[in-house]
Simulated scan of single mutants.
Amino acid sequence: MKLIYTGKTKNVYALEDGNYLLKFKDDMTGEGGVFDPGANTVGLTMEGAGQAGLRLTKYFFEILKDKGIPTHYVDANLDEATMTVLPAEVFGEGLEVICRFKAVGSFLRRYGKYVKEGQALDSFVEVTLKDDERGDPPISEDALAMLNILSREEYATLKQLTVEIANIVKNELAKRDIKLYDIKFEFGRVGKDKHIALIDEISGGNMRAYKNGEPIKPLDLEKMIIDAQ
């Protein structure tokens, strides 16, 4: 294996067969030791976080596979905290796509003049550039097209998949009386036809989930979902 990318929460290795291996770490995004899925820095390290993230990712990616939704997932090794994935071409230098069901986090900080904390949002889709130096700025469909990061047709597909996948996750959590406030995804172009597919992960580190009005820590969320099966 050849290390090709060192990320905040996982490392990426190239495999001889052309696929890639993602190695999940115990590092989590946040600031000052407090977890925040919207942060662009590593804020804390929790033993077992990488394996928990992979267990939840495997669970959700296999649900999506059964529903025929395109992803880069091939298989996972829970003991090694690794996931084998198809190669994917990212948009520009990477985009993050957030689906929001409640006004919290950076949405609330930006638009707090017009919304109350926890106010319901209708599967609001927001795209941000992966750019730590500039604080992952939000970007519009027009700007994405003008800057040749992705086409308007690709944006429509990206948005449709985001809403569909987010609501699948939301409904799975609801089976455990857990409310999904927001979730962050990444997408890429996969295969010879360069179809848009979900990449990266679906874990507690990528979402805000609440039960009885209290936020659920990523490791606790994994136990509540996986152990409840």
Rank of each mutant, 00 (worst) to 15 (best):
L3M: 04
L3C: 05
G7F: 01
V12G: 06
A14S: 12
G18A: 10
G18V: 06
D26C: 12
M28A: 14
D36Y: 08
G38I: 04
T41Q: 10
V42A: 07
G48K: 05
A49L: 06
G50N: 06
G53I: 12
K58L: 10
F61N: 11
F61S: 11
E62C: 11
E62A: 11
E62F: 11
G68P: 00
I69L: 14
T71L: 05
V74D: 08
D75G: 08
N77V: 13
D79C: 00
M83I: 08
T84N: 11
L86E: 15
A88K: 15
E89P: 05
F91P: 04
F91S: 09
F91I: 00
G92T: 07
E93Y: 02
V97W: 07
K102I: 01
R110I: 04
Y111S: 05
V115F: 15
K116A: 13
E117Q: 11
A120N: 10
T128L: 13
L129H: 07
D131M: 03
G135R: 03
S140V: 12
A143P: 00
I149C: 00
I149R: 01
I149P: 02
E154S: 03
E154W: 06
I168P: 02
V169E: 09
E172M: 01
I178N: 05
K179Q: 06
Y181G: 00
R208Y: 05
K211N: 01
E214Q: 15
P215Q: 10
I225G: 07
D227S: 08
